[in-house]
Simulated assay, not measured.
Amino acid sequence: MVLTDTAIRNAKPADKPYKVTDSQGLYLLVNPRGSKLWRIKYRIDGVERKLSLGAYPEITLAEARAARDAARRQLAHAIDPNVAKRQARIEASIRASNSFASVAEELIEKKAREGLAEPTLEKMRWFVKLMGADFGKRPVTDITPQELLHELQKHERRGRLETANLLRAFASRVFRFAVATARAERDPAQLLIGALTTPRVKHFAAIIDPNEFGALLRAIEDYQGDPAVMYALKLTPHVFQRPGELRQMEWAEVNFDKAVWTIPVTKMKMRQPHSVPLSRQALAILQAMRSLSGSGRYVFPSIRTRARPISENTINAALRRMGYSKEQMTAHGFRTSASSLLNESGKWNPDAIERALAHMVAGSVRRIYNQSAYWAERVEMAQWWSDYMDELRSGGNR
């Protein structure tokens, strides 16, 4: 008997499961609760086996017959359809675990174990989100250069040139990790070098004129707002470290007796621990803040929750409230101001200034040397710099 759609629809449930046969081993199993399941009966090596195809009407009669014919072709080549189906399921599972997003997350977890700074890890997670959920589900082995370029150009068309280039570089890291772990054979992002528009290099706006810098210091002194923001703003020019390092400053990192702030490697951009000598003025600012937040973890806690530090845009937002545009001054610009004015003074070794800024020095031996050789000079320079800023704030200029 050859089945028809009418016969299938008219097949009613009975007390026990029963079969409605089609041809060449295909049949429909009708269950007491009404479900109708496609099955194929076949023999391999003399043993009878059954292959499940799915339920009717999700799998139509025509689709069930096509699946039966495909199974018969496998049998003709001595392939067990059940084994082939199981292998296909395993391969699909592997492909799902080898999606761009899953491989990227593995890479991020690896970098976390290696001690990469948390802000950098967060930026990597942000990159994964920017690539989009649909792209993230794509197996790394299937992604072509053209497909990746299409995703990157979405950002390029919106004028986010730097973001597009950063995403290409991040995607390349993910693909190289996939290659290194035997889950991909190539890096399609490598082939896109030069395909995107290169953004113009942007420099952080900074005030380097002594008189203008003095006016900025006076504005900071007059700033009114949340105490954490006020004191963070006051401390920033004294220590001139990266904004992310300062906002995440913890009391456990500050040694008042030795007048040193030690930033752990996990927070440093260059993945090198960094010690910052604290002037008398810097210590006074921290002492004032300690009476407000000393019982918590962070020196400058968020106004919303003491479990987190102030946000990364807090200092910039304060500068805008003071009337300084992003073209005039930025939180990162305090580093440029300090570097420029310290070098201009002619009093300090340029290598000591570079070390104070925590810039990477080539060669591990030279790094170790710089950490020790310039410490005494950096301590003296930190105090001179704070005294100099006091003079600038009062209207003087050495």
Rank of each mutant, 00 (worst) to 15 (best):
N211W: 05
M230Q: 15
P237R: 08
L216M: 10
N255A: 12
P237Y: 09
P237C: 13
M249Q: 11
P227I: 08
Y231H: 12
A206V: 02
V254L: 13
I207M: 03
A228H: 03
K258D: 14
E212K: 12
P237A: 14
I220F: 10
W251I: 12
N255R: 11
I207P: 00
E250N: 10
V229A: 12
F204W: 07
L217H: 00
F240S: 08
R218S: 07
H238E: 14
A228R: 03
E221W: 04
Q241V: 15
F213H: 01
F256T: 07
D222Q: 13
Y231C: 05
Q224R: 15
I207A: 00
V239A: 06
A215L: 09
K234C: 08
D209Q: 08
V239R: 02
H203F: 03
L233I: 08
E250Y: 07
L233R: 05
M249T: 11
A215S: 11
A205R: 00
A205M: 02
L235E: 05
N211F: 05
F256V: 10
P243C: 13
L233E: 05
D222T: 13
E245T: 13
A228M: 10
G225L: 09
T236Q: 15
A215H: 05
R247H: 09
E221D: 15
A232V: 09
G225M: 06
A232Q: 06
A219I: 01
T236N: 10
R247C: 10
A228C: 13
F204A: 04
R218G: 05
F213M: 03
A219G: 06
Q224D: 14
E253A: 11
V254R: 02
L233N: 05
R218N: 05
V201F: 01
P210N: 04
E212C: 04
V239G: 04
R218W: 01
H203V: 03
N211K: 12
P237T: 13
R200F: 05
F204Y: 12
A205W: 00
E245H: 10
P243R: 11
I208G: 04
F204H: 15
E221S: 12
I208V: 15
Y223F: 15
W251E: 10
V239I: 14
V254P: 01
G214M: 01
L217Y: 00
F213Y: 11
A215C: 04
A228G: 13
Q248T: 13
G214R: 00
E253F: 07
V239Y: 03
Q224Y: 11
E212A: 15
Y223L: 08
P210E: 02
R200E: 12
E245F: 08
I207G: 00
Y223R: 06
E245P: 08
P227Y: 07
F213S: 00
V239E: 04
A215T: 11
D222P: 01
L216E: 00
F240C: 10
A206W: 01
D257A: 13
Q241H: 04
Q248H: 13
L217R: 01
A206S: 12
D209W: 01
G244S: 13
A219F: 00
K202P: 00
G225C: 07
E212D: 15
M249K: 05
V201K: 15
N211D: 07
M230R: 15
A205C: 02
I207N: 00
Q248G: 09
A219C: 07
E250P: 06
Q224G: 03
